[in-house]
Write a protein that binds this DNA or RNA. Sequence first.
DNA 1: GTCTATAAAAGGATAGAC
DNA 2: GTCTATCCTTTTATAGAC
Lengths: 197, 197
Amino acid sequence: MSAREKIVLAAMELFWLKGYNSTSIADLLSRTQLNSGSLYHVFPSKQDVLIGVLEAYRDGIHQQLLAPAWAGVDDPIAKIFALLSHYRMLIVETDCAYGCPVGSLALELHEPDPKVRELLAANFENWTAAIEQCLSDAGKRLPPETDRRALAQFVLTAMEGGVMQARTHRDVSYFDRAVTQLRAHFDLLENAAKVPA
Amino acid sequence: MSAREKIVLAAMELFWLKGYNSTSIADLLSRTQLNSGSLYHVFPSKQDVLIGVLEAYRDGIHQQLLAPAWAGVDDPIAKIFALLSHYRMLIVETDCAYGCPVGSLALELHEPDPKVRELLAANFENWTAAIEQCLSDAGKRLPPETDRRALAQFVLTAMEGGVMQARTHRDVSYFDRAVTQLRAHFDLLENAAKVPA
DNA sequence: GTCTATAAAAGGATAGAC
DNA sequence: GTCTATCCTTTTATAGAC
């Protein structure tokens, strides 16, 4: 594994565990067993490490996130809730300390460099694009006038808001209630599609 | 104004603008024109300043947030969307840099002291309790089986998720779409209450 | 590309006089 | 309760040999 890969992997984990500002270069060096010369040879500044991390999340969304979450799931609407179940598993596995890596960075960094902000936005965009594809695949099960882009973004909204509250209260039931409300919303939409007005 | 009040006010603004970790004690001293002796006399550590800030948000929610947002609004469901409109105004006023002060801190602080975590949770709790009161006041306009606590938390979820995306994309339309989806959810609920199954 | 050593600054916090 | 001075650590980043 190259020095670059080692650093990005370590940074993905440490930024997720401790946040960007609370992760020092020394933390990354200690975790990777590299020396500062190697790190700064690859990444001229700490922010460049962050950019590497955000690019890795962006490029890995299908393999690292969606593929495991959607294993054995074909139904497009089931896929949406399977993804949310995947997040629920992450929450439970971490004793409710789980935070979405991208969402946490998006709120921690208050005046991000344009490049960083664009990468955060690209990560959200990829996530919602995958959901929007599911909604397209759901076809006539949703009312024809459904704004599928808005609804896909709403799924992200529900996930991020649910994760935030579950983490703050250290109680997964806050996430569960967000999912239940979203499920109710989908049920109402699917019913409306069956019995047109 | 006491030194304590000066510090809490300055910290509320700076934590909101720059985040907790990126606000230094020196920033607070410069903003308040106090000396370090005065600050440390009142707050033994930086974390104590944070606690003061979270207590101020908790205790000021009605006067500082709800009263302005609900001026002239009586209808309980209108109040919910008036509060969301208030957030929209804050987003627009800040050129889409707005972040919920509590939500941002909740995601920035990864291993918060129990006291800090409890105060973050108390802030969310007060917010959702106010919404839950609106939902109670809405009475029979919602289906009787409606889980009003879960729905109130879902309003917070939608707000936080919408604010996060609007800020990341620097585009208020992301917030607007979250509100529109929530509005559609309420419309479906209100319709279901009118025409029972 | 990687090594060691170190610069240069910022950060939280304390001491002791007044 | 407030003042000035300062300690000590951490942190990002660089220099120059190998």
